[in-house]
């Protein structure tokens, strides 16, 4: 029983990602947006965040680095401010980038976080890593731009334009909270176990591998996507 209790966090970790799929925003979301009013924008925003593995991996990487609840709130607030600025601003102004390219940069943010958490800057560059709060803000801006580009790929019309953007952003925040709860729970619980160091290394090496894989995947899509 004791053994099972120890395994429980890992089993939850195993099960959790299976219920989410990669960036579940799809054609069906366009229908939801067409017919669901402002509430639909909240729903689609939340769905995009909860099912967007690149955003979640980056946030998981950030939380790995943090120790206290206050820290977590501080960093997540900065990330939220960052992505809200570009999500609302870029969408309102109609600024967007190629989806593959922006997703490739977001992939690099995942790689960056894993590398930093493993003290890659100290080991390989013999220097301290850049201020994390500042970097989280910068990456927040980049993630927000990615979210904006995705939102702009929908036909959202011009009626209540700002309200729709804000609602999508609110959805993103709600989705972020929903996704963070199990992530924070797992990581903080695991921190008390002996196996945490192994888990820490495994998870951050995985972030590096996932960052590289997502980057290659997006660049492949960019060069072979008929652009």
């Amino acid at each position: 029983m004791n053994r099972l209790a120890k395994l429980l966090p890992f089993l939850i970790l195993l099960a959790y990602p299976m219920v989410v799929s990669a960036h579940g925003v799809s054609d069906s979301d366009q229908e939801i947006l067409n017919n669901g009013g402002l509430l639909a924008y909240i729903l689609v925003g939340a769905k995009h965040m909860v099912t967007g593995y690149d955003h979640l991996l980056f946030l998981a990487g950030v939380i790995f680095y943090l120790s206290g609840f206050k820290d977590i709130v501080r960093f997540i607030t900065v990330f939220t401010i960052g992505h809200s600025i570009t999500l609302i601003g870029a969408t309102y102004l109609g600024i967007k980038a190629d989806e593959h390219l922006i997703d490739a940069v977001i992939a690099l943010s995942v790689l960056y976080k894993g590398f930093e958490n493993l003290k890659g800057f100290e080991k390989y560059f013999k220097t301290q890593s850049p201020n994390l709060l500042f970097m989280v803000f910068i990456f927040g801006l980049i993630h927000g731009f990615g979210l904006s580009t995705r939102l702009q790929s929908f036909a959202i019309g011009t009626e209540s334009f700002l309200a729709k953007i804000v609602c999508f952003n609110i959805g993103v925040e709600l989705g972020q909270i929903a996704a963070l709860i199990p992530i924070v729970f797992l990581i903080t619980r695991w921190q008390k176990l002996k196996s945490y160091q192994a888990f820490y290394k495994a998870a951050n090496v995985y972030l590096i591998i996932a960052g590289v894989a997502l980057f290659v995947y997006q660049m492949w899509g960019y060069f072979n996507g008929g652009h």
Partner: peptide, 29 residues
């Protein structure tokens, strides 16, 4: 070749592969 998130690698394959990878790394470390 259109850009379509639902095409290519299905999400569950990505996550499953990720979990297997994390598990292997975990055992290794």
């Amino acid at each position: 070749d259109h850009h379509h998130e639902e095409g290519g690698l299905p999400g569950y394959v990505w996550w499953l592969g990720s979990l297997v990878l994390v598990a292997i790394l975990f055992v290794y470390f």
